[in-house]
């Protein structure tokens, strides 16, 4: 059986897990290619207009896969940590896809709860039964997928450069170079190296998050907020670049919370949607990099505006 895995959304974080799990079950795996113009256009065509860019791109990946495999896996991840969620759109992802794209093959879109492990096992059994009748095989596949996933760590290799900024945003915006228009390379060319939230350990994140009035119930919000505040307080960075999709509900809260904690640091929010013009995007990044230079070269007590 051919299982299609769309290369969108949390593939960038849990791709290893998805591939290993289906591979161990003996399925043939078809992964959609890196996001490209055609996939984006397909996604925009099918997806509901109000959705954010990553969701639209994901629709494009599914549409690419629809006649190339027997079933398509939809990573409907409800929650990664206990009492925390991803986003309502993730919870309803399977329904969104099923009602938006015509002529789909069967969708493997069972809800995934990452913790506790019994719930994850339930998902594995529910999903695996379409591929094999052997329960032991499914359990083994889950174990090896988990252990492989735990060993991999998401990183972007960075050279040592003059300025260092925190690149914040949801994993699929940060790690998909088409979505963010090759932001990392562009920054590197401007003598700016980046550090992502993955560089901050869980304990330091918890330490910062616990100071909030209300514990954030979005995993991305928790990670990004905690990591940002930790990096700012540690004075390890010269600025913050936040890559955010237009109309993201989580970011509308999160950016404000982070800005509140970084009063004297250059902070740029780059909004992306399917219309983003690359030239304007480049100009803004260049201006930001210039400002970082001015702050370091000419003054020591500048405002956040340079």
């Amino acid at each position: 059986m051919k299982v299609g895995i769309p290369k969108g959304l949390l593939y960038y974080k849990y791709g290893v897990f998805m591939k290993t799990f289906f591979d161990k079950l003996g399925a043939e795996i078809v992964v959609s290619p890196d996001t490209n113009r055609q996939i984006l256009n397909e996604g925009v065509k099918y997806c509901v207009d109000e959705a954010c860019l990553p969701i639209k791109v994901f629709h494009g990946h599914v549409s690419y896969l629809k006649d190339k495999c027997d079933v398509i896996f939809i990573p409907r991840i409800m929650s990664i940590r206990e009492k925390e969620y991803i986003c309502p759109k993730f919870c309803g992802l399977t329904e969104m896809i099923a009602n938006s794209i015509p002529d789909l093959p069967f969708l493997l879109g069972e809800p995934i709860y990452w913790t506790p492990k019994e719930k994850l096992m339930k998902w594995a059994l529910n999903t695996g039964k379409y591929l094999t009748n052997d329960k032991q095989k499914i359990k083994k596949a889950l174990e090896s997928a988990l252990s492989k996933q735990n060993k991999t760590k998401n990183t972007i290799k960075q050279p040592k450069l003059k300025y260092k900024v925190a690149l914040l945003g949801h994993p699929y915006s940060v790690y998909d170079p088409f979505l963010n228009m090759d932001l990392v390379k562009k920054l590197n060319r401007l003598n700016v190296e980046i550090i992502t939230e993955d560089a901050v350990d869980d304990k330091s994140i918890d330490f910062e998050v616990n100071k909030l009035f209300k514990k954030p119930f979005w995993t991305f919000a928790r990670n990004t907020y905690g990591a940002a505040v930790n990096l700012v307080k540690g004075q390890k960075i010269d600025g913050v670049v936040y890559i955010s999709s237009f109309a993201c509900g989580i970011d509308s809260v999160l950016i404000e919370l982070i800005e509140h904690e970084t009063p004297n640091l250059p902070f740029i929010v780059l909004k992306i949607d399917e219309h983003t013009g690359e030239a304007g995007f480049n100009t803004r990044i260049e201006a930001f990099a210039d400002m970082l230079g001015r702050r370091l070269n000419f003054a020591y007590n500048n405002t956040a505006y340079g």
Binding site: F213, K214, F217, G249, V253, L257, H260
Partner: peptide
């Protein structure tokens, strides 16, 4: 009132207090 669902209504209070 508050909520702890994935909808952002639950985060209103945090942000409103800060603003």
């Amino acid at each position: 009132t508050g909520s702890c669902g994935p909808c952002r209504y639950g985060e209103y209070c945090e942000l409103q207090i800060k603003i």
